[in-house]
Design a protein around this nucleic acid. Structure first.
Lengths: 257, 257
DNA sequence: CCTCCAAAAAATGTGCACATTATGCATCGT
DNA sequence: ACGATGCATAATGTGCACATTTTTTGGAGG
């Protein structure tokens, strides 16, 4: 498992024409994860141009490797690819964001329609436990944990069906709305009210599909209603090198695709 | 709009070292569509190995171009990519197929939950018109049209919401089940019963979500219940050249991605 | 001073050569 | 005779050089 570190000092070391840096199975993944993470954490503002050559220097890898990763992110709709003009961080319309939220809302309604048929004590207990966690985080004022747990609730719901297809769909949706949130959502308000999550679970306990869907819908409309254009995020990121500065050679993760 | 034809006789013509065949914006798309179409039409049986070099010869393009297309299809989960071992047409498990169908079912339940809130005369009229088409095709015994219209019904339902995200999700799902169907579904039976479609529309007319979801669910379970392993499709395709034989240089289609 | 245009500079796209990895096959050993 | 092993062959992965396209720049004309 040899893996070259990619400190910024690698670029110029081409002393030997042979032994070019080839055969790196996991380096693609490292670069991919680094850029994806920067996107999800909102370090890359909307509209930022991601040129191939600078990124290649920053990561200390060849341009084609960056190129491949960029195109992959484009295929996943996380970057906007324009032929002959490179990759940019998408600048979603308010309507785009609404569409993603609506899609999530619709998907969750479908999930609920299945869940009311499959509800059992085990699942209920798990959801209750999650609600308790959420309440605890809210009570002690842990904002970061609240945001994280709030999103995790919806993930729990789909995962309960045990269908990888559906879980993946929601994952894509969430990752995209995460990016969008950094542009449109007032930072402090992005927490779902725990009461609403509790109401959904209560409706599921009663196997009341109509109520569950209604509550879920209302819940999403609340979140959607809070969407505002964040003017601060209008300016693209300038210093790309700073964004990817403190990054380790490789994260233990590995996905077999 | 110059576009080289890709007859099989191009491979060897490297007389001039300069003027290498570069800058072809739409050729990727042509190859992509050709392979995708072959997949959807079931010409490529499950388990078939898609090697880069032979495909490059067949299409008369460079290997890297084939390579890019193959990886794109892999990212879309339409091909199974194994590192250092190339691309194969996936051989889905019966459980895989069931998962896709279940995902479709869940998604449609969500769509219905939105539709009951948005139902109006215009939409109802459109759905009724579609049902009429389906019945007409069934009465005159047009099997091809029946299959096509039967699938189109579900597409109509999502499209009615006007959310591109949701439409795209269903599109992906359908295209994947199309491939799977060729392996698992007895050819003649893949038609949804019109009565069931009609029952869904009737429930929508009454804005009865519970009934609509129940009917839709039942409808999908019928289809899922008919899934059988088709042993004939077990053998991989041998002659790749034959599959892509009668193909024109370019199809009028063009997608801006 | 602004606009328009052409040439230079930079960035993206692509074929090619070669490294690396997998596979088929003959040979050897038990 | 059968399985393991090493070599030859084929297939995939990658850096590089260069073509093409886009963007920037600098200057001429209105």
């Amino acid at each position: 498992m040899t893996c070259r570190a990619f400190g910024p000092s690698y670029v110029g070391m081409a002393m030997r024409p042979q032994r070019i840096g080839k055969a790196n199975p996991a380096e693609d993944e490292a670069v991919y994860q680094a850029i994806l993470r920067a996107l999800l954490e909102g370090k890359l503002k909307a509209g930022t141009k991601l040129a191939e050559t600078p990124l290649a220097s920053i990561f200390g890898v060849s341009r084609e490797r960056i190129r491949k990763v960029l195109h992959r992110l484009g295929a996943e709709r996380r970057l906007e690819m324009i032929p002959n003009r490179g990759a940019r961080v998408p600048r979603p319309t308010l309507e785009d964001v609404r569409r993603v939220y609506e899609a999530h809302r619709v998907l969750e309604a479908g999930v609920l329609s299945q869940l009311v048929l499959r509800m059992d004590e085990v699942l209920l207990a798990r959801l209750d436990a999650h609600l308790a966690e959420e309440r605890a985080a809210a009570q002690r004022g842990d904002r970061a944990a609240s945001v994280r747990l709030s999103g995790a609730f919806h993930v729990h719901l789909v995962d309960a069906l045990g269908n990888p297809e559906l879980s993946r769909m929601l994952g894509d949706l969430l990752s995209r709305s995460s990016v969008m949130v950094s542009v449109y959502e007032p930072a402090a308000q992005s927490i779902c009210a725990v009461d609403e999550h509790g109401a959904i679970v209560a409706a599921l306990r009663d196997r009341d599909l109509l109520r569950a869907v209604a509550v879920s819908r209302e819940h999403f409309l609340h979140v959607e209603g809070r969407l505002r254009l964040d003017e601060d995020g209008a300016a693209p990121t300038q210093d790309l090198a700073a964004v990817f500065a403190g990054r380790r050679p490789l994260r233990g993760k590995l996905r077999s695709a």
